[in-house]
Design a protein around this nucleic acid. Sequence first.
DNA 1: TATATATTGTACATGTATGTACATTACTTG
DNA 2: CAAGTAATGTACATACATGTACAATATATA
Lengths: 201, 201
Amino acid sequence: MGRNKAFSRDQAVDSVMHLIWSQGYQNCSVKAVSEMLGITRSSFYHSFGSMESLFIEVLKRYYVHSPFCAFDQINEQGDILKEICTVFQNICVARVTDKEAKGCLMINSIIELVGSNDILSPPLSSSVDVVLTRLKRLLNAANMQEKLNEKEVEQKALALLNLLIGINVSGKFIKDYEQLWSSTRLSLQSLGVYNADYNMT
Amino acid sequence: MGRNKAFSRDQAVDSVMHLIWSQGYQNCSVKAVSEMLGITRSSFYHSFGSMESLFIEVLKRYYVHSPFCAFDQINEQGDILKEICTVFQNICVARVTDKEAKGCLMINSIIELVGSNDILSPPLSSSVDVVLTRLKRLLNAANMQEKLNEKEVEQKALALLNLLIGINVSGKFIKDYEQLWSSTRLSLQSLGVYNADYNMT
DNA sequence: TATATATTGTACATGTATGTACATTACTTG
DNA sequence: CAAGTAATGTACATACATGTACAATATATA
């Protein structure tokens, strides 16, 4: 019972995600967000509580749009390393293609907020942990023959994460696909993830 | 002739640098900065014109504090690759040591501003170009025997820049030196920059 | 159809933020 | 020491921003 919402929460979270994505969290005031949603600030507070709690909701939603998510789709029975490379390649395409140079919302937010926002730092940090854990799992699965030890897997996973972050930032000023991808491929190849046989261009 | 400034411009730029560094550019209002400097906003505008122009001044000043600057100090006659590794190692130390998790001002600002601030995007992007050019030069100088071609040098330089960016961001949530450095070392080693003989721990 | 209730809107009090016009101050040079 | 000038301060007009109290609205259920 009670009155119906004048807006779809799903759509709202989605458009707020895009706003924060392109403008940064700190640049999104309750006023601006409310106006974009076509509701009053009063309704905003009633529905979402605060910008922080809305952002946490956005963050969960973002995951399915994130470069990280693609790692979850990888079939562990297939050629894992090749699929990892494909994910990286797709990220290069996405970064070069995006005219707004938005980059990755999660990475952007980490830089913007971790260390300064006590409420949002924990969820952001733990989001990264998830990715790191996932990468370790993939590397271990791909590792049946190579036999890296636990520490080496961890190092390599973090190296891949660093590369992921690097690309997402470089994409802000490097708009040439060939340049971005070829250096990414070089890094992947060096780390033993890319194989010349893959022949990706 | 005329009245003396009540503050040292040098000190002012320096403290504004640290404020922006720890809080982010967008979080530093003219009001807050003026109050920190102990001057009125009126004086601020008179002395600096705008936050944007002050930031450009800060950016120049930052360079000598930046991880990038260390590359300029490298003696091209010595063991260039080893010195590059030392720079990376020092960055790992700096990131892990910094309790505020500030990261690199330049990288932070790129993520925060490139693509959204039309005035500050160009100086930020060109700052990166300087670093990339410097890295290419170092790699070429270290390359006398290896004979990489132009493209390969460019790829490797960008790979190093990506690594640099990755570390600076990872340092926000990874506070264990061993973890950060060992994965960085792995990346450097993979790229043929680190040599097991260096024996850096 | 009446009523409970979730949603929305209005209004308020308060603080922050920006940029400028104009007056004041203090110092330097002739 | 007088005059010119750079630096500073005051005041204003305007807009943005936050969070809440209270009233109005719409709808599902009884």
